[in-house]
Simulated assay, not measured.
Amino acid sequence: MLSFKYYKNVNSLAKLIDGNLVSKQIKENLIVEVFKYKQLYNKTPVLAILQVGDRQDSNVYIRMKLKSAEEVGINAQLMKLPKNITEAQLLSNINKLNNDSDIHGIILQLPIDSSNSIDTDHVLAQISIDKDVDGLHPFNNGQLSHGVTKDVFLPCTPNGCIHLIKSTGCDIEGKRAVVIGRSRIVGGPMAQLLIWNNATVTVCHSRTRDIPDIVRQADILVAALGKPEFVKGDWIKPGAIVIDCGINPIPDDTKKSGYRLVGDVDIEEVAQVASWITPVPGGVGPMTVCMLLKNTIDGAFRYAQKYYDKDNTLDESLIDISGDSIPIHKLNIEETIANGGDCEIKSAQ
């Protein structure tokens, strides 16, 4: 279980689930896995990031992904494509990456910033299932819906949320969980992951009646609807674990930018009732990037064993991971927090 601090002061019941700290711990393990991969295959895991257009928020998120990839030893390559690109041209670029044996993971930065009409779902479905490290391909989503969670790519934000819940010491099995939001990127797969972790799950959405009454039953609440401070304190079951996937700008004249970021949960109220809560920023966001890196490394191993040397058996006893053999990149948690420590969270429907 992770060390913790209370939200604002000890008079608050809720302890903060520090996504920066949890992701740092996972990254330290990923550094070792990357080193093993390099020793075995004499290759570096490569992540290709496709960006259409030049949205400023996307630029910020991509810089975070590039920086985190460098920290663990992954070679992340950004392919910037013009805003006027056609769907056919975008698919052609994806096809080239699919067929490049040196590329182990492919992500398409969303939303697609194009002046032309592009079917996002169709484009995502053209990414090779062997390289779909965002976990958004219909095949990987379908596997999850059938309870297959090994040797497939799990969606990064939901999987990060599961890690955050478990970091509190909570045993998910038998708990009553509520997910607010049903998007294919966060809410839907979040519910599936909770189900396959043996929780009893209710999904609320824009047509759900009496949402507060449903939320009051939740031992675990995941808010992923994209509405600032939607969840109020009197909705929360005392002692519940609250995971806030929202990241919403609201006006704030005291900030140089003129706005501040808040989640889908009113943290001032909810922290007085919940036992654990994720902050915004610095909660779910760092875990989304961390799970992307984990998927890339896992995918590199699976891809290598499938295509590079089908007859090779990995003997980890031959890999030297002792002493100074691993080139450790010092992870600066203070710097991460100073820079906001958060990244892209897709809002749900």
Rank of each mutant, 00 (worst) to 15 (best):
D121L: 13
Y41E: 12
I243D: 04
Q51W: 02
V32G: 03
E229D: 12
P189D: 05
S58V: 00
T296Y: 04
V242N: 02
E173P: 02
D132V: 10
G181K: 06
D102T: 15
V231Y: 05
H329V: 12
S115N: 14
G142P: 03
E268I: 05
K80F: 01
L314D: 05
K175P: 04
K294E: 15
C161A: 13
Q349K: 15
R63Y: 07
N95C: 02
K294T: 13
K15S: 08
Q349L: 13
D119C: 06
T149N: 01
L90I: 01
N84V: 02
I112M: 02
I62R: 10
M64I: 09
L30R: 02
N95E: 14
Y308Q: 11
K150V: 03
D134F: 11
K67L: 12
T296C: 14
K67Y: 10
N29H: 11
T168Y: 07
E269F: 02
Y303M: 09
P286W: 06
L97I: 04
T44C: 04
K131Y: 03
N141S: 14
S92I: 01
P158W: 04
G239S: 08
G340P: 05
I26Y: 11
S12A: 09
V60C: 08
E229T: 12
I106F: 06
H137Q: 09
C245S: 07
G19F: 09
V231S: 07
G285D: 10
I103N: 05
V270C: 12
R209A: 14
K36F: 07
H163K: 15
K27F: 06
A14R: 07
K8E: 12
T278G: 04
I17W: 07
C161K: 03
Q109R: 05
S92W: 05
S101W: 06
S12K: 13
I345S: 10
M291R: 09
N98A: 08
V270K: 13
L261S: 02
T254V: 01
I337K: 15
A125R: 11
K67F: 03
G135I: 08
G283W: 07
I62T: 09
I162S: 01
I241K: 03
S92P: 01
Q217I: 00
Y7I: 10
V280N: 10
P286E: 07
G188N: 14
I180N: 00
G142M: 02
C290M: 15
T208I: 06
N295M: 08
K43A: 11
K5Y: 13
Y7T: 04
I103M: 09
V262Y: 10
Y41Q: 08
N29L: 10
I333Y: 07
N42S: 15
I180S: 03
T86E: 07
Y6G: 00
N29F: 00
S257G: 00
P238D: 12
S115K: 10
S3Y: 12
V22R: 08
S275L: 05
V262R: 11
G283M: 06
K175R: 15
